[in-house]
Amino acid sequence: MIEFEGVRKTYPDGTTAVDGIDLTIPAREITVLVGSSGCGKTTLLRMVNRMIDPTAGTVSIDGEDVGSLDPVRLRRRIGYVMQNGGLLPHRSVLDNITTVLRLNRVPRAQARARGLELMDTVSLDRGLASRYPAQLSGGQQQRVGVARGLASDPNILLMDEPFGAVDPIVRAELQRELLRVHRELAKTIVFVTHDIDEAFLLGDRVVILRTGGVIAQQGTPAEILAHPADDFVAGFIGADSGQRRLRVVERDGARIVVDRHDRPVGLLDADTPAHSDRR
């Protein structure tokens, strides 16, 4: 569980990227931070592994204030995946995946074996192991990024627009795979995107941020779809445009969530989370 308490971040140039956020991110679920460009998603995410320190407030993992932890060691036990993979261009695919393991002094042979396993996990052909990142397609690079994020078997995986730079088809494929990996490994995933469809597709919980770094609404996709908190959220999720993949309809007196093809994917106003049978 990751908790933000009264977290604020003001950069030296005076920009306030995150303004007093209280947020609890449950363990073993996918929580998606969504919002338009510049609303502080990346800043919020990076405060978890202390790439950025908050100006005020605390971030804690399982009750432990990250501010009190050594940043380098903290980062080695949290997976981080960024747009374009952020791969080291001068290291082979396998070396990239095993970086954290090697940093944690795992013996070379063992790290290698684990790296190859991870390539299987993210459906990468093992034959690519000795290639350099520049020799891979964008989608493959992204898979390497995910494998690297998973390498140290972290409890937490932070993903910053990981699928932002690939075409829609590869993107859909990567999204499906992420859901599969999550089903298998059940990590706590914090996923940043500015694509509301992606947020609703992947998120157990979705947190919508608005410019200035404040939370506009949070909840399950179904809750947000059913009750947009205000006009901003309604506009952002396109509730009025009817173009969402998911929307809410009334059928036989019950309110249910349906996808683009009118197939029911969940039941609102029920005890179980509406979307849980979607997978």
């Binding site: 950069y11 030296p12 990076r46 950025i52 100006t55």
Partner: peptide, 15 residues
Amino acid sequence: GRRHRRPATPRGAAQ
């Protein structure tokens, strides 16, 4: 400046 509108390494970052 290239693609980024921000300094190469986040200035407020913890090292």
